[in-house]
Design a protein around this nucleic acid. Structure first.
Length: 724
DNA sequence: TCAGGAATGCTTTTT
DNA sequence: GCATTCCTGA
């Protein structure tokens, strides 16, 4: 069976089993570096070889980038086109567009990003007559997101929580928020999933059609699916059961987004005949790196034991180093990279990972200083720019005049003498009469409170937009160019450029790039402006990553998922950073942070460099840091500041697999601290012990001080005195 | 209407 | 430390 003309590589026995399992459900539990993606692409090829039409195959990936890479691989195997490869979100947009009547979603909806969501939620809170201080927008959005992921609507939630004041408030805000989205003819990210999941659940006809369209379904990174995504996958395969999912519970890092490892367990229940294949061999990383990863992940208690079997020979290197502060840390990392570049390593085969985006700053500066080419893997860079957002707002308004967010953004950009006061009046009128904002503007002569001069300006604006709407069938790039010139945006940017020296203007270049991308879209894709806009809304950070850029990649640990590099540096191994401050109160979240570090470590093929700094400045305050417990758990002992920088080979670690750290504990006979004790600190004053982590001489005390601050302190430096 | 300065607050990770 | 919002005065 292995003489498939598409398959050129030799596969292991388990991989073969996963590739050639044709009918029925299949669960692939695959560790890092086990060739998971290759299994999926080969499986696609194998299905086609067996006579399945490519159009009947659907593979769902975690990012658009992953889908693109998968497509390239499939093309390289000479598989004919037509396989549907995309993320859950893109797939949902397609389904909702196709079945817009059944789903009760209009065709031209806008997709709202976080900044849109934020202003909608603020409005929703205001309408519920609640205070932003007691009901912070971010929290409300989080709560609503969770409800949507669990497919619960506002009314159901309110009914289910009678008598609970806070929940009633959340429910009200949720209801208002949905009303606002509906008025704007907009869906947020969670709506896309929820609407699709409900469509599949409640409409057997649609479900049946989709089951016939996609006869074979594959889902990658299954451990990171949330409940809504789980329901979608299940619904899409319900009638034929040809569903293949791959995942690794140890790499689940999206719990905060509602991802549920339980979906893997549920898989076996939903598909009782599921064949389970485990891929434990690791073809990516050297055994030294895998040993560290294995020691680390073994510290997770709620975990099924799984082996990491190295397929590569020994010879990988782990360096760990503690530096004075983040600048020293960054320049150390730059030095590490520089040396490797000089010794002939490829820049595109190197990456630096960090826990939070803000940590890229210091690294960037050090890289610039050392003339190291780098790319930051974050798409917000481009799509977050003002001029791009303005352009897109015009386009959104053209396809969806109900989009108030877009309208408010550009009605006075460039300046047309329509100010905040006028906008507020219009919005208030629109809300009170339940007339769309655009219609209010078109018929503004009725509004007495607006001066005649302003009315004329409003009319002119409305006419301009209506004029553009007539051209909606134009190629996207042409329409964009027309909008750019006729709105005055071009002149404005040109004028700004003239005041800058050199006449070179990044904003102008950015818009040119946007128009370029539209041109590419026009040539390669079917569909018009609506499709273009909806696709752009789903573009994300990792999508800007170029694997052959000749640059070192800088990214968060979350972005690193699914990628691999020869040489990897991970910075900020400090308590409060990794694990992150917001996770340290919950054992469950600490385990997720541990998995995050695990993902980071297992990206490295040949070399891993782990750093921390003794002092770090966070929100303008410089504090002494505390070592991350993960360092000890992984058995990574570092060279300290002041000493010569030197590397050590992993085999130098004396005790393997965690024993190292337990013996340290047994040296320390009694715990000097326990939770609840009242203590005093020289600088911070009185406080109560919240947690005590007994790590021998590296023990950590977490103290809540009277000032309200919660601080992790390293026992040997903290100099705490016990009051009671 | 709008610019500019002061005050406030907020900080994880992403589709 | 930075971004956003708030507030004031022209």
């Amino acid at each position: 069976m292995t003489d498939n003309r598409f398959l050129k590589e030799k596969l292991t026995e388990s991989q073969n089993k996963a590739v050639w399992h044709r009918d029925g459900s299949l669960l692939v539990i695959a560790g890092p570096g086990s060739g998971k993606t290759r299994v999926i692409t080969n499986r696609i090829a194998a299905l086609v070889e067996q006579g399945v039409s490519p159009a009947n195959i659907c593979a769902i990936t975690f990012t658009n980038k992953a889908a693109e890479e998968m497509r390239n691989r499939v093309v390289a195997m000479d598989v004919p086109g037509g396989v549907h490869l995309s993320t859950f979100h893109s797939l949902c947009v397609r389904i909702l567009r196709k079945f817009s009547q059944a789903a009760d979603t209009p065709d031209n909806f806008s997709i709202y990003d976080d900044s849109n969501q934020k202003s909608c939620i603020k409005e929703a809170i205001k309408q519920a007559e609640l205070d932003i201080k007691n009901f912070p927008p971010a929290r409300m959005l989080e709560a609503i997101s969770r409800l949507k992921n669990n497919l619960q609507n506002a009314d159901e939630f309110i009914a289910a929580n009678v008598g609970d004041y806070f929940s009633q408030c959340v429910g009200k805000v949720y209801r208002n928020y949905q009303k606002i989205l509906k008025q704007n003819n907009a869906l947020d990210f969670d709506d896309l999933l929820m609407a699709t999941a409900l469509l599949l659940k409640n409409n057997p006809g649609v479900r049946s059609q989709l089951n016939q369209r996609f006869k074979y379904l594959m889902v990658d990174e299954y451990q990171d699916t949330n409940h809504a995504q789980y329901q979608i996958a299940r619904g899409l395969a319900l009638e034929h059961g040809n569903i293949c999912v791959t995942g690794d519970p140890d790499q689940s890092i999206y719990g905060w987004r509602g991802a549920d490892i339980g979906n893997i367990l549920a898989f076996e229940q939903d598909w009782p005949n599921a064949v389970i294949v485990k891929l434990e061999e690791n073809f990516r990383s050297g055994p030294e790196i895998l040993a560290a990863a294995d020691r680390l992940i073994s510290a997770n208690k709620s975990r099924k034991q799984k082996r990491l079997i190295p397929a590569l020979p020994a010879g990988a290197e782990i360096i760990s180093q503690c530096l004075e502060d983040e600048r020293a840390e960054a320049s150390y990392v730059a030095g590490f990279v520089r040396r490797l570049l000089d010794s002939g390593e490829e820049a595109s085969q190197m990456a630096v990972f960090y826990r939070v985006n803000s940590m890229s700053r210091a690294i960037e500066e050090a890289f610039i200083e050392n003339h190291i080419p780098y790319q930051i893997v974050r798409g917000v860079e481009f799509y977050g720019r003002k001029e791009i957002r303005d352009m897109l707002a015009y386009l959104k308004l053209i396809v969806n005049p109900a989009d108030e967010q877009a309208m408010v953004r550009i009605i006075n950009t460039p300046g047309r003498g329509i100010g905040k006061t006028t906008i507020d009046k219009l919005v208030a009128y629109s809300a009170s009469k339940a007339i769309g904002l655009f219609d209010v503007i078109r018929n503004c002569e009725r509004l007495e409170s607006i001066p005649a001069g302003t009315k004329a300006k409003l009319k002119k604006f409305a006419e301009m937009i209506v004029g553009f709407q007539k051209d909606i069938e134009m190629p996207v790039a042409d329409l964009m160019d027309k909008v750019f010139r006729n709105t005055g945006l071009y002149n404005e940017l040109k004028a700004e450029a003239a005041t800058e020296d050199g006449g070179k203007s990044p904003p102008l270049e950015n818009v040119a790039e946007l128009i370029n991308s539209a041109e590419r879209f026009d040539m390669q894709e079917q569909g018009g402006l609506v499709d273009f806009l909806q696709r752009i809304a789903l573009f994300s950070d990792t999508d800007t990553y170029e694997s052959k850029s000749g640059k070192v990649s800088l990214m968060t640990l979350h972005c690193a998922k699914g990628l691999e590099f020869d040489n990897v540096a991970i910075i900020g191994l400090e308590h409060g950073i990794l694990p992150h401050e917001r996770s340290i109160d919950s054992a469950r979240e600490i385990e997720e942070e541990r998995r995050l570090f695990f993902v980071g470590i297992t990206r490295a093929r040949k070399r891993l460099c782990v750093t921390l700094s003794r002092y770090r400045t966070v929100h303008g305050m410089t504090n002494r840091t505390v070592d991350s417990q993960f360092l000890f758990e992984a058995g990574l002992r570092y060279q300290d500041t002041g000493q010569r920088q030197s590397s050590f080979v992993e085999s130098d670690v004396k005790e393997p697999s965690g024993v190292y750290y337990e013996t340290e504990i047994s040296d320390e006979n009694q715990q000097p601290f326990s939770a609840g004790q009242l203590v005093s600190h020289k600088k911070f004053g009185l406080g109560r012990v919240k947690e005590f982590h007994n790590l021998g001489e590296n023990s950590i005390v977490v103290v809540q001080f009277k000032t309200g601050q919660v601080k992790p302190l390293m026992l040997k430096y903290a100099n705490l005195s016990i009051i009671e």
